[in-house]
């Protein structure tokens, strides 16, 4: 839609609230034009604050700067920034119909009636909700509301699209379906977007890049693959996917700095026959998941480990198994 998409640059953006709590330490972030960046982290990590600073709903502390391409928008209020925003609660105006909601941003921009009508129709078609045009908001399901909220946000052709946990209020099945829709929408629009979520699956599916945040800081930035395969520290490793830890003394011949655990993901452990693995363990729990089995294993480490196996063998509680993890599958975490 936009030929030259807007790059967003944050420079030393921190946020201290009036009561003195520090929501965000000074953060630098560069989002390329057309890129989808996902801010991922547990609640209270500062991801929503960061999004609201980009939106213009919060002012960064004094030294912070927000740039859209070559425009310094730090002092610009939200209504002048030309951003599109999608809220967790949808925030649809209950006193307006679906079409009126989508038209609102165009109306306050004083576009002509025919133009507005054409654009609204285009948006409704794109979101496949044309038949809902004259419905009231309270007559819509959650998924329909989310589509209207998206249509409303992109109708104004914003420079940046900001999405604040847009799928959290939906049930699991719908969430997955809308995730796919949003993904193809963002790709077809090629619009710069920043997406906030605490759901790692959502982040992996949608993000060109993921920014993992914790306690007001950016912990790691990278593509989903990088983040998953090379987590920088144990917070990232734990937050994205599951990891197992065993003392390095349990396996011979692997170099780790002294005192560091060996860390690996459940799917990287292989069950081998006749005690030929690197270590043995006793199955504590066994869950049949259809395509695979998940085993909780006591291998003598301080914590039980989790492994997932796609083998068809029946493994039951109490079974002794032997486990092998390929050398290069261990995660390097300090």
């Amino acid at each position: 839609m936009s030929s030259n998409a807007t790059a967003v640059t944050l420079h030393k953006c921190a946020k201290t609230f009036e009561d003195g709590t520090r929501a965000l330490d000074p953060v630098d972030l560069a989002v390329e034009g057309g890129e989808t960046v996902v801010l991922l982290g547990p609640s209270g990590c500062g991801k929503t604050t960061l999004l609201r600073i980009v939106a213009g709903l919060e002012n960064p502390d004094n030294s912070g700067e927000v740039w859209f391409n070559n425009d310094d928008v730090t002092e610009l209020p939200i209504e002048k920034r030309n951003v599109g925003m999608v809220f967790q609660s949808y925030a649809l105006f209950p006193n307006m119909t679906v079409a009126e909601n989508v038209a609102y941003g165009l109306r306050v921009r004083k576009m002509s009636k025919p133009e507005i009508e054409a654009r609204v129709l285009e948006m409704l078609k794109m979101m496949r909700i044309t038949e809902l045009a004259n419905r009231n908001i309270d007559q819509l399901s959650g998924g329909q509301r989310q589509r209207v909220a998206l249509a409303r946000a992109i109708a104004v052709r914003p420079r940046v699209l900001l999405l604040d946990e847009p799928l959290t209020a939906l049930d699991a099945l719908l969430r997955e379906r809308l995730r796919v829709e949003i993904d193809s929408l963002l790709r077809s629009l090629a619009i710069t977007s920043i997406y906030v979520t605490h759901d790692q699956a959502e982040a992996m599916a949608l993000g060109d890049r993921i920014v993992v945040m914790s306690k007001g800081k950016i912990v790691q930035t990278g593509s989903p693959r990088e983040i998953y395969n090379n987590p920088k520290n144990s917070f990232v490793a734990d937050f994205i996917g599951t990891v197992n830890r065993i003392p390095s003394t349990m396996i011979d011949g692997i170099d780790t700095p002294k005192g560091h655990d060996l860390v690996f993901r459940p799917e990287d452990a292989e069950i081998v026959k006749n005690s030929s693995g690197q270590f043995n363990g006793k199955v504590v729990n066994s869950f049949f998941l259809g395509d695979r089995i998940r085993l909780i294993v006591d291998c003598g480490a301080p914590e039980y480990i989790t492994i997932e196996s796609f083998q068809r063998d029946v493994i039951e509680e109490g079974d002794e198994i032997s486990i092998h993890v390929h050398q290069d599958r261990f995660l390097e975490i300090n």
């Binding site: 925003m85 809220f87 925030a91 105006f93």
Partner: peptide, 26 residues
């Protein structure tokens, strides 16, 4: 819902438009 006001603002509404279009109807 404070998000209602924020949504209107993000769509470009001035303070006055927020009051007339969102707050007073609510």
């Amino acid at each position: 819902d404070p998000a209602l006001e924020e949504a209107a603002q993000s769509l470009g509404a001035s303070s006055w438009e927020v009051i007339v279009d969102v707050i007073l109807p609510a």
